[in-house]
C-alpha cells in the first residue's frame, strides 16, 4: 500500500516524500534519490522537528553530501534502487 509521492525541490536538490504504512502504523519517508539516503520518521520524530531552529539544519549540512560524502551515486545504483522501490 503506498500513498502519493510528493516531490519537493529547489535549484539545489530535490527529495521525494511519502507516507509509508507499516503493519500497525504509519511513517513519513524522505528519500534523496540523488544521494541515495532514505529516512522514515514517526510522528514523534516529526514533531520534534517542529521545534528545531535553522541552526540544527545548518549543522546537519556541515557535510553537504551526507556523512559518507559520496559525491555522486552511480547511475546504475540509482536506477536499481528506484526500480526496487516501485
Amino acid at each position: 500500500m503506498s500513498d502519493e509521492v510528493i516531490e519537493i525541490g529547489n535549484e539545489f536538490t530535490f527529495v521525494r516524500v511519502r507516507k509509508v504504512h507499516t503493519r500497525n502504523g504509519v511513517r513519513l519517508e524522505i528519500h534523496s534519490p540523488r544521494l541515495g539516503y532514505r529516512i522514515q520518521l514517526d510522528p514523534l520524530e516529526l514533531e520534534s522537528l517542529t521545534w528545531q531552529t535553522t541552526e540544527t539544519f545548518s549543522r546537519f549540512l556541515e557535510t553537504p553530501f551526507g556523512p559518507r560524502e559520496r559525491l555522486m551515486r552511480p547511475l546504475s545504483e540509482a536506477l536499481i534502487c528506484d526500480r526496487r522501490e516501485e
Binding site: 516531490e7 519537493i8 535549484e11 530535490f14
Partner: peptide, 14 residues
C-alpha cells in the same frame, strides 16, 4: 485570447 507570458529561469523541479 492572445497571450505571451513572462518566463523566469527556474529549477527543473518547478
Amino acid at each position: 485570447r492572445y497571450q505571451v507570458p513572462v518566463r523566469v529561469t527556474r529549477d527543473r523541479g518547478v
